[in-house]
Design a protein around this nucleic acid. Structure first.
Lengths: 212, 212
DNA sequence: TCATAATTGTACTTGCCGGTATAGTATTAA
DNA sequence: TTAATACTATACCGGCAAGTACAATTATGA
């Protein structure tokens, strides 16, 4: 009867990290593909090749799983660093590169699906929205602002309000195309059209902000 | 036993149009407020002051009701005619008026809720998306294009591609604010900020497209 | 008036889903 | 070896919602 009252932990079989990963992956895919409501816990468990109870041993409830999945998805969706340029890169070249990168990012099936998910859950889950915004749009906006600030400092452009200008630029790059794709209308982005669009926007932007 | 095989119609009690209207109104309100999934047929019937069976006698199923409600909502949401100007209105004034009107429209609770609804249902119900786009965004875009074309014709602006320019202008007016509100983050539009934003965009636009 | 059809209230069927219970098997640290 | 814990399979509970059945009532055109 000499039994320790509470071996605080570290006894017995440990949780399998592979199963955790499998669950998370399945959740990411299903939530993105079919939305929150249409993705049942049973379906997620099945897709992960795991029993429902195991799922519940890793995540308290559907909401916790959803939050974690979205967070994870956000983190893995901002790899591109279009914002690294050497000192002497002409600003026009930088804008073209950023513009094209941002256009492709924001109109990718991945990003569109994530946007739809977030917007659909906006009212029930505002914390997730904040998470998403801070991880995605906000960072891009910050980087863009910095770039314009630098261009202003080096007299390449005349941008007294870099924050506002950054928003204008990114809004134009996103363009009407993005809304149509979000709503599920219209063609997927075509390479030619994309390049044309970006060049058009950059020209417009340079005309408006070129240093006198 | 002399009975007509099928008195094709027009006999018996007619359907009450007031009830039809009440159902449609309740559906519009609930779908907008709480989304598709969270609006039960029972709740809609109750809100309309009507029995569930009456509801089903007017609409075959939930999807039919949804489609009709969205169509109706789209039609009633495009009243503003910011696009009527006398010949000699200076283009800058016209842009300011249009910009402010569009900004307020697109950031109103009504419009935001409708956008969320459409985007959330994008995959399951692409027909509804098309409906929405044709009734709303497309018309605004067309009108904007016409205006720019006219300004180009009268040498007030130099806009060789009015369609693209119209998209750019409206995209900027909508701005980052709209995404944040769609996602449920951030403040409702403030009058001061709105005016400032619109003026900023119009200035930028004029700089980029002023006739030489 | 009278057949016809709309409307109502209630209860029902059917199906799905979130979450839990049980009971047994597998795995691991001590 | 042993105790603790993860994991599985299956079944179950409670709730909710779409749509239907029924039986009664009410309004309308013929």
């Amino acid at each position: 009867m000499t039994r320790r009252p509470k071996p605080p932990s570290t006894a017995g079989r440990p949780k399998d990290p592979a199963k955790y990963a499998a669950i998370l992956n399945a959740a990411k895919q299903l939530f993105i593909e079919k939305g929150y409501g249409a993705s049942s816990m049973a379906a997620i468990a099945a897709a992960a090749g795991v029993s429902k109870l195991t799922l519940y041993s890793h995540f308290a409830d559907k909401d916790a799983l959803f939050t974690t999945a979205v967070k994870c998805k956000c983190e893995e969706q901002l790899p591109p660093v279009f914002f690294q340029f050497s000192e002497d890169t002409p600003i026009r070249q930088a804008l073209l590169t950023i513009g094209l990168g941002f256009y492709n990012l924001v109109n990718s099936e991945e990003a569109l699906a994530l946007h739809r998910l977030i917007i659909a859950q906006a009212s029930q889950n505002p914390r997730v929205s904040q998470l998403f915004y801070d991880a995605g749009p906000r960072r891009v906006l910050d980087a863009m602002e910095q770039l314009l600030q630098a261009a202003h400092g080096s007299r390449q452009l005349d941008v007294p309000q870099p924050r506002a200008a950054a928003e204008h630029f990114l809004s134009m790059i996103k363009g009407g195309h993005n809304l149509r794709l979000l709503a599920g209308i219209g063609e997927p982005p075509d390479v030619q059209i994309a390049r044309q669009h970006v060049e058009d926007v950059v020209d417009l932007f340079m005309r408006a902000f070129s240093a006198r």
